[in-house]
Amino acid sequence: MKIAVCVKQVPDAEARLRIRGDGAWIEEEGVTFVLNETDTYAVEEALQIAERTGGEVIAFCLGPERAREAVRKVLALGAARAVFLSEPALLGGDALATGRALAAAIRAEGVDLVLTGSASTDLGFAATGSVIAGELGWPHAWLVVGVELAEDRKSVRVTREMESGMNESSRIALPAVLQVQGGINQPRYASLKGIMAAKRKEIRDVAAGDLGIDPSRLGRAGSRLETVSVALPVSGREVEWIEGDAAAVAAALVTKLEQEAKVLR
C-alpha cells in the first residue's frame, strides 16, 4: 500500500517559551523544534503497514524551511520520499487552510491511506486530519489506537479512544484518513544507516501555485482564525511556593502532609 503520513514540526515540550516582540506568537530563536509527538506514532504505524503490505510511505509536511529537518528525520526512519510545502503563502493557516493544502498535495500522489497525528502540540486544533479527509471525500477516524487491515485491503478495523478509559471499534472503508493517538505502537529510532540513506532520498518541494487552489483559500489568507496575541494564562488561585534545598523542601512538605492534608499516620 502507498501510505501518506503527515508530519508537523513543533517546539520541544521542554522549550522555554518567550513571547515575540509583536506579542502574536513565541520567539522562535533559541527554541528546539522536534517532530510532533503523535506524528512519531503515525510514522511508525505507516512504516509497519507498509512493511506488512510491501508498500511505501511518503511524508507530507507543511512548514517553514526549518521543518525540513523533521522531514529528514522521517526519511531516516524509513519513509521512501517526502513532499514539502514551505512557501510563505502556505504558512500561518488554520486547520481548514492547512488541511486543504496538504490534501491537494496528497491527491496528486494518489495514495491508499493517510495517517496523521491526533493533535499538534503547538496549535492543537486536532482537526487537520479530518479536514484532509473531507477534502478528499474519504472517511476518517480521530484518536486511533488500533489499526487492523482487512484481508482484501478494502477496509480497516479501527480502535478509537473514547473518554473515560473506553475504546470503540469500528469498520471504515478504504481509502481513509486515520488520526493516530500516542501509545498505538513503540516508535523505532533512526539507525545510522537510515540517517545516511535519508540523505539520498527525494524531498520534493511543492509550491502554492502547484496545488490548483485559489490562493485566497490558502495559508494565512485562507484562514478563518487570526491570532491577535498570546499571553501567559492567568490563574484563579496563587500557588504557594516552597523554597530551599531538597532537605528543606522535604521537611516543609512533610509538615504540610501531616498538618494540612492529614494523610500521614
Binding site: A126, A127, V131, G134
Partner: peptide, 23 residues
C-alpha cells in the same frame, strides 16, 4: 469540546464552508 465533537466538527465546518475554532 468532547472526543465526539472533535471527530466530526472539522468535517461539518468544511461542509458548511464555516470557520472552525477548536477548544
Amino acid at each position: 469540546h468532547t472526543y465526539q465533537t472533535v471527530d466530526y466538527l472539522p468535517r461539518l465546518a468544511q461542509e458548511l464552508d464555516a470557520g472552525l475554532l477548536p477548544e
